[in-house]
Structures are given as structure tokens and as C-alpha cells.
Simulated scan of single mutants.
Amino acid sequence: MGTQRGHRRPDVTELELVGGPEPLVVGLQEFDEHWAIVYRDHERRIRDALSPAPVEIEHIGSTSVPGLAAKPIVDIVVAVDDITAEEDYLEPLLSAGYVLRVREPGHRMVRTPQRDIHVHVFERADPAIEEYLLFRDRLRTDADDRALYERTKRALIDQAWEDMNDYADAKTDVIVAIKARARSAAEAEEHR
């Protein structure tokens, strides 16, 4: 999933990409049940770092979808009360061993130095969180969309990507279509 946010990509002037563009160097792996264990370990690490503040933490991205091939990068979303109050969450996350990668309006992303964990921080109730969960839940429950997404990723992963974000952006049309089907299914279910 990487930077797939499901919403408007910020203006270049709004985005601080700490360290600059990075080429995509990891490939897809078959689903690994160990990713859920890695997520739980980092969930505890994040809760401990941000305690006693109330935070919502979810495993997102392809590593959160059983049966889906993924880059071996565990994506996590964290909801905080005030994204502008970096002293409440960014400093504690950096002290817990994460490093800052992205700073943009409404979103921060920290990761492990090994680049195998990406923690996306948003303000509570940011629509991006709902978008992540909508997409994840659709892939968890719909085999056809899960297969479509995996085919798309496999078709793109072998290309040379100067920046991982460009790879993520190349999946946008498929992601938008899958989320549209997820919304339609949810609306149909509400009317039953």
C-alpha cells in the first residue's frame, strides 16, 4: 500500500519527503501470516510510546489482507487527537525508534530504519482513515477484487520505479474502482 491514501495527492510544495524520492527496491511476496504478528508487536510499541493518550491503531495495506501478495512492508494507521501537536505523538514515536519520512498537511509517516514498517498518522476522523479501512475490508471479503488488485500490483511491480510513490500512484484507478464497489455494496446492505 505504501502511500496509497485514496485522496488528493498533495501539492509538491505541501509535501516534505524526508530523504527525497526512493526507488522501489522490494518485490511482492506471497502472503505471510507473520505479518499479523509484526503488526501486533508494533501496535504495542506505538501504544506504549503514545500512552496515556487515546489513539486508534489499525493494520492496513496489503499485509493486512490474508491471501494477498504484498511488499513485505507492514502499514499501520494511527489516529491522534491533533495532527498539528507533533510534540504529542511525533517526538514519542521518534524516541521509540521510528524515523520521520513524510510530513504533509494532515498526515505524517514514520517508519522503522529497516523500512519494513510504515506508520501513517492522521487526525482522528480524517476521511483518509475511513478510506484505508474501506479498501482493506473490501479486499478481505471480496475474492474478485482481491485478485484484481494483486494482478495490478504484479503487472506494475516489475517496472523500474524511481520513486515508490509513483508505483503507489499507478494503482490509483484500480483502487478507486474497488472502493466504489465497496461503497455500493455497503449501501445495498443498508437498504436490506
Rank of each mutant, 00 (worst) to 15 (best):
A69L: 07
R103M: 04
V119L: 06
V99S: 06
P66I: 05
A79R: 08
I60C: 06
V77K: 01
L68K: 06
I60T: 14
E87C: 02
V99M: 11
V65C: 14
L94N: 00
G97S: 03
V65G: 05
E87G: 04
E58P: 08
A128Y: 02
R124I: 06
D88E: 14
R136K: 14
F135C: 05
T112F: 00
D126A: 12
M109A: 12
G97I: 02
P66E: 07
H59N: 08
A79E: 15
A85R: 14
A70I: 09
V102I: 15
I117E: 00
I57C: 07
E123Y: 09
A70V: 11
R138D: 07
V80F: 00
A96T: 00
R124E: 10
L100K: 08
T112K: 00
H120Y: 08
V80P: 00
I129K: 02
P127D: 14
R101C: 06
H118S: 11
A125T: 12
R103N: 14
P105S: 08
M109V: 12
G67A: 10
S64R: 01
T112P: 00
L68Q: 07
R124S: 13
L90H: 01
G67Q: 08
R111E: 08
D82T: 05
I117Y: 00
H59P: 04
G61Q: 11
E130K: 15
R115D: 15
R111D: 03
I83M: 13
A79M: 13
E86G: 07
T63M: 13
E58T: 12
R101W: 15
V74T: 14
Y132T: 04
F122S: 07
D137N: 12
E123H: 13
E56H: 10
I76S: 02
I73Q: 05
E87L: 06
E130S: 14
E104Y: 06
D137A: 05
R136S: 05
D88H: 11
I83P: 08
A128C: 08
I83L: 13
A70L: 13
Q114A: 15
Q114R: 12
D75N: 10
A70S: 11
Y89C: 01
E104M: 07
E56A: 11
E131R: 15
V77I: 10
R101E: 15
H107F: 10
E87H: 09
E86N: 05
L90N: 01
I60E: 03
A128R: 11
R108P: 03
A85Y: 01
I60A: 03
G106L: 03
G97M: 04
D81I: 06
T63Q: 13
I76N: 02
V121F: 02
E123A: 14
